[in-house]
Design a protein around this nucleic acid. Structure first.
Lengths: 352, 352
DNA sequence: ACTGTATGTTGAATCGTTTAACACTGCGCA
DNA sequence: TGCGCAGTGTTAAACGATTCAACATACAGT
């Protein structure tokens, strides 16, 4: 692996000149430019970004810290961030926390050692955010992704959970449903709360009284979706529609229907807040609130890089990205169901 | 952001001593150790890994280059690699090529500038691999992931496509099928070829003649799966089973069945080489060859780090990881279907 | 008292860049 | 003739760590 010194020697110029032709920082005569380029080619020289980083105190590396890349919600986010970063010549170091605050701390420490220019962070909830505060205090920009961190002020790109849920429930109402059950996430989670809020808002706006019996608290996991969906059916609470607050629970609910011989949408309408099938919404027949994960990643990265480069200054920016409601067969009301076969073909929309 | 000099000053020791207590490279008296640690704490000091990297010529960063993290096959791989790397104190820089060789080249260049210690590479097929060769020649270890690169010799972790397809088709045969259609990938792709090979092998072993009419070449995309599945049904080639060589095409096939009113497995058995539903195999009722992506990533990372650290030397290692056949309802033969309802519940298996 | 050895600590060179400060060469012009 | 200036180049000092040779100290053995 050759160095700038060897290139300089081979081209018979000073290392400053080599640096200048590489970075275009100063005028260099065409002749020397040619000699330098030739030397670079012949030596297969790649400038040492590490040495450069040491000198100029920026690495053009961004940390991307999230719970679990295996959760289908995140790859889109990463892709959005990475593409945006790549365009501006930044790279991403990604790391998974598995929602463990201890691991998150270790990762953030490492990223600080690596002197990343900034960090995109979907933080594990509930822990002491001291590590985040000290990171910010040390001058490393941080943008929160998907999850705000209480009592820490920084830029953030979040989902409009209230709006998404509200729109979805409004759709259910428009389809003629008045008794709409909801399976929420764990209500100590911020976004679960917001989704429930959206549900209530939609009902209020339609002057439908809120029946607490229709509100079932799940935990975002399969089993709770399965169990609570059965409850919805068997307790005969006369719900004509069910709104499930994430994808995994929806799978549980679907299987519950299956086991009980309940058919959707014939017997009951179903809509889901979609965490899971995001990549292939088209393969599903479910009406869903889909999260614009690519866009979220892209926006967050843009904000972060703008902060780093100083083109964005001042108070923290909080962006709420709106999800889109994708209406599909699962919420066709029984009467409309008569011509249901005609819309049965489900081709994938082009996904970017 | 403080430096080792400031820490040394505050603890009234030399920078060498600070370095020694941080890295444990030399004995330091307990008293000085204490003073140094206190100073580190008070200054919120994080050793500069960039400066260190410059000096010791290793960064403990690994490049991870793959086509598209959004393809559900890859997150598992990344996770496997990252976890393994993290345990040994390495970090991953991930980047997507979108199968574009030009982008791959740009990424590899950047990684070389960053002086990553090694690269995990799922290379875009078909391009001139000169950039890979020169990378290896420069002393950066490369491990191929999922895809070998022709005419370049390096460690590789690949899937046993032949074995996977063979086992799956053998299963179909055991279920009583003798006319088994196959929708392959584009036969210029290595893995598509291998899967076809496995198909043929299984038929041969069962003394079933290979009928070219049953072999349909797709391109791994939705549309081809849809079109060719229709062909299988409509041309009345009397196939009793269909083996589709990746997940996306399988979705196409499923919708084709749907449109034509064909029921699986009552009318035809279906098995798939699973690229797509890997994350939630349990949500599907399809018999599938599932790829152990986590393991592939982990193995590849281990090999790479072993190479870097010199504990693995000698000729390239080629690991073929065996996929597992997961038998589900879609290949139950009609007679066995009679008691099908009993196995209808599909709960997710714990995914790691 | 002297030598030898073990233990602890430090000074200074080094890694590969960037960049400010300076040097040189011509040239136009008063 | 002498001056300023524009255009090109080079020198050398950082950047923040690691590491080795050298030094200091204490103590044991003779």
């Amino acid at each position: 692996m050759s160095t700038i010194v060897e290139v300089a020697r081979r081209a018979s110029v000073s290392i400053a000149t080599v640096s200048n032709v590489i970075r275009g920082t100063k005028q260099v005569s065409l002749e020397l430019q040619e000699r330098v380029r030739a030397a670079i080619r012949e030596l297969d020289y790649y400038p040492n970004a590490i040495a450069r980083g040491l000198k100029v105190k920026q690495t053009r590396m961004l940390g991307m810290v999230l719970p679990d890349i295996t959760n289908p919600f995140f790859p889109g986010i990463i892709r959005g961030a990475e593409d945006t970063a790549f365009e501006r010549d930044y790279f991403l170091i990604t790391a998974n926390t598995d929602e463990q605050i201890a691991r998150e701390r270790r990762i953030v420490s490492a990223l600080r050692s690596y002197r990343v220019d900034g960090i995109l962070l979907a933080s594990a909830p509930g822990g002491d955010p001291a590590h985040i505060r000290s990171t910010i205090a040390s001058g490393v920009s941080v943008v929160f992704l998907d999850r705000p961190v209480p009592a820490v002020s920084a830029d953030a790109v979040l989902l409009d959970n209230v709006g998404g849920a509200r729109e979805c429930v409004r759709h259910l109402i428009q389809c003629g449903n008045r008794r709409i059950a909801i399976i929420t996430g764990p209500l100590k989670a911020q976004n679960a709360l917001e989704r429930l809020q959206g549900y209530k808002k939609a009902l209020n706006e339609a002057d439908i009284a809120i029946d607490p019996a229709l509100i079932l608290e799940g935990d975002y996991r399969y089993e709770s979706g399965n169990r609570l969906a059965k409850q919805v059916i068997q307790s005969r609470m006369k719900a004509t529609a069910l709104f499930v607050c994430n994808g995994v629970m929806t799978f549980g609910a679907l299987n519950a229907f299956d086991e009980l011989g309940v058919h959707c949408p014939k017997d009951i309408s179903l809509a889901t807040f979609d965490d899971l099938t995001l990549d292939h919404p088209s393969y599903s027949h479910l009406t869903a609130v889909v999260q614009p994960s690519y866009e979220m990643g892209a926006r967050a990265a843009t904000i972060l890089m703008d902060r780093i480069e100083g083109s964005l200054i001042g108070d923290p920016v909080i962006v709420r990205v709106a999800p889109t409601l994708v209406v599909r067969e699962s919420t066709h009301s029984p009467k409309r169901l008569l011509d249901h076969r005609r819309s049965g073909s489900r081709k994938p929309s082009s996904s970017r």
